[in-house]
Structure formats: C-alpha cells, structure tokens
Amino acid sequence: MTEILLSRPEPGIASLCINRPEVRNALNQSVRRQLAEHFSALGQDPDIRCIIVTGGDKVFAAGADLRDIADATAIEMHLRQVQRLWQAIAGCPKPVIAAVNGYAWGGGCELAMHADIIVAGENASFAQPEIKVGIMPGAGGTQRLTRAIGKFQAMKMLLTGLPISGREAFAAGLASEVVEDAKVQERALELARTIAAMPPLAAAQIKEVLLAGQDASLDAALMLERKAFHLLFASQDQKEGMRAFFEKRKPSYTGQ
C-alpha cells in the first residue's frame, strides 16, 4: 500500500494524503521520508502553486508510530536526523494548507503546524500528548505551538497532553478556519484554488518574509519586507497584475 498518495486535483494544486488508515495515519520514518521527498520535489515544480497536506476525511495523523521508536536509544534517535526530513516541509517555498479532520496528535499536530494555513473540522482534535509516554515533542511542538497560541495555552496542552477541538484550536489561534467536518477537504481545495490563481512570485516572497521576520527584530523584518516589495517590481506578474487592474480584466500570472 502506498503510504503517501499524491494527486493533482486541479491545475497548480498538489495534494499529499497520508494513507495508513490501519494505524490512524501514524507517522513512521518511511512516511516522514516520503513526505520530505514529495515536498522537496513539489517545491521545485514550476507547475505547482499550492500544496494541500491531509490524512483524508477521517483522521489527519494520530502521532508518531511508537512501534518505530519505543526501543530506540538516544544515539539511534540522533542518527536518524529526523529534523532534516521535517526541514524539507518547513523550507518548502510553496504555500501549504493542512486539511485536518479527526486526530492531529503529537507528530500529526506538528505536521499541521508546518503548514501555512490550517483548515480544521469542528470535531478535529489537536494534541501534544507525548508527556503521557515519557517524552516530549521533538519536531517543533514546544516552539511552534507557543508561537501560535502563546505560553499559557501551550503549557496547558504540553503538560497535560489533553486535546482541544477544532473550534477550540481556531479560538486559540492554532487554526486558520474551522468548518463542518464534511467540508474540510472542499474548503482546503477552495483556498488552494484561490492561492494558485495568485502570482506565485508574490506568494513565495510573502511566505519567506513572514516566516523570516517572526524571529527578527521589527526593524530587520520591515527591511526584509521592503526589499521583497521592491524586488517584485522586477517581475512580469507585477506589470500584468496592474495592467489587468486598470483594464478591468482577470490577470494571467506566469511566475515570471
């Protein structure tokens, strides 16, 4: 069985679906490696303008596959260099949308937080329950979660391991939108379609500057923003977009 299903539902859009239903899409080393390979390839594909990552309409990913790590030593965990696989997702230049139904626990929650937009179902479940098995998050769960929802909400989730619903995640700032469970995949595709119609150079610069600016001083971040803003005036898409605005027509962006 293919563990990651790649589809291209519409022009400019790629969808990656974790396909391990027998273990609630638990993330093992093979799945992480395949995700990294797909994100690396799609990030360089000029025909792709937005990527959806999902586990389907039942469960996103219920965490790490504990059978894959239960007996590992510290040195074995270090030698796996899992952070390099996660970096392929974090460093993807294309906008990424996580479509979350059901469990997004542990590594699943961390995977969702690697996305740029999270569409959550009302009954989705987000958690970092690693403490319950004697460990802690190891793929950004302490850092990305705190940046998303703040210290006090993050501490509660991390120290208790208790889940929050899709609606609670949206209220806390962990999700971009919350919709009916049955509409998650449809809404993610709708957002991807909107983004895919935008100028890809501008989208890439927005993503790069926003992420880089989060850990910079305000002055440094504003400088990065100005430089990227000026750079986009060298693109054909900028000329096309503004001409289309004046001519009252739909623009056609080529990524040039």
Rank of each mutant, 00 (worst) to 15 (best):
T146R: 14
N28G: 08
L201T: 09
N19Y: 09
E22R: 05
L6H: 13
F60N: 02
S40K: 10
L189Q: 14
R249C: 07
K94I: 09
A99G: 02
Q238Y: 14
Q81M: 03
V59L: 08
P11M: 11
K132C: 08
L174C: 06
K239T: 10
G255V: 03
K227E: 15
N28F: 05
N101F: 06
E130V: 00
E3R: 14
N25C: 04
G56H: 14
E208Q: 12
A172Q: 12
G12M: 05
G91M: 04
R193Q: 10
T2W: 07
C50N: 01
I4E: 11
A120G: 10
G141Y: 07
S217D: 14
A234G: 04
L66W: 07
A169T: 05
L191I: 15
A115P: 03
L189M: 08
F245L: 15
E22G: 00
C92R: 01
N101T: 06
T146F: 09
A120I: 06
Q205W: 02
M1E: 13
V59P: 00
P137A: 00
Q81P: 03
E110A: 04
E177S: 11
M155Y: 12
L210D: 10
R49S: 14
V23K: 04
L16E: 11
D219I: 09
E186L: 00
M155W: 05
F233W: 13
I131G: 01
A124M: 04
V178T: 06
G55Q: 12
M223F: 09
D181S: 05
I117M: 14
A197N: 12
Q143G: 13
G150H: 08
L27P: 08
M157L: 15
G213Q: 01
A98K: 01
P95R: 04
E240R: 03
A26N: 00
R243E: 15
G56T: 03
P129H: 04
F246T: 08
G161T: 05
M113G: 01
M242C: 07
Q143F: 13
T2R: 13
V100G: 01
A172Y: 07
E177F: 15
V53N: 00
L174D: 06
P9C: 10
V82F: 03
I131Q: 10
D45F: 04
L231H: 15
Q87R: 07
C109Q: 10
S252L: 13
T194P: 00
T146Y: 09
T254H: 14
A115Y: 03
A88N: 01
A127P: 01
A196K: 02
R167L: 12
F246A: 14
I89M: 10
D237G: 05
Y253T: 02
A154G: 01
E130C: 01
G255R: 15
N101W: 03
C17F: 09
A124Y: 11
I4K: 08
A212T: 01
A127G: 07
